[in-house]
Design a protein around this nucleic acid. Structure first.
Length: 173
DNA sequence: ATAAATCACAACG
DNA sequence: CGTTGTGATTTAT
């Protein structure tokens, strides 16, 4: 459907023991990261770049790949690529920035995030912004739990939220 | 351009 | 448990 939408981005695969992620880069940095798609889904394959990728992007991709694999292995990533969060509204960027500041292995509640961005009552809106997060895992939306340490929801497979938290040594109710 | 529906929440009874 | 208060985004007029 929205077929021509990816043409500005360069998509590269990241094979991991958990499946093949797909990273997309703009001129400004990592723009999106996708969880491994189901077996029958070949949607992204056609847009994958090959060979003629600029050195800068290859370097970013190395950082993304390393960081992702470290998180999947339950270790804090040493270095991160630059992010391109130019998409999204001001509110969403504020939420994403707040999430980036959650240390590895810790969690925050939706309400805490709301307070951090000075909109203490916009807790529900924060949930919406998390779902719109284009770079899961590296922008740690999985570290945001509901109040009283309940798991809360997840746009992608909730299985991923549990898996990632468990590997970070986090427990919830 | 405006209005209604939707949402990964939270607090209270 | 259900209800209600909230704010941003998305979808429908």
């Amino acid at each position: 459907m929205t077929a021509a939408m990816n043409s500005q981005l360069i998509a590269l695969p990241i094979p991991t023991s958990d499946g093949e992620f797909v990273a997309r880069y703009s001129e400004r940095g990592l723009a999106s990261l996708n969880f491994p798609v189901g077996s029958m889904d070949r949607t992204d394959r056609g847009s994958l770049a090959h060979g003629d990728v600029s050195p800068g992007i290859r370097q970013w991709h190395r950082l993304t790949t390393a960081a992702l694999k470290q998180v999947l292995a339950g270790r804090a990533p040493a270095h991160l690529p630059p992010f391109d969060l130019s998409v999204g509204t001001d509110f969403q960027r504020a939420v994403w920035e707040a999430m980036r500041r959650i240390p590895f292995g810790e969690t925050r509640s939706y309400g805490e995030i709301a307070r951090l961005i000075c909109r203490p009552k916009a807790v529900r809106a924060v949930g919406g912004a998390c779902g719109a997060n284009p770079i899961p895992v590296l922008v740690p939306c999985h570290r945001v739990l509901a109040a009283h340490h309940k798991l809360g929801g997840f746009s992608a497979d909730p299985k991923w939220k549990r898996t990632l938290l468990r590997r970070e040594g986090v427990s919830w109710s």
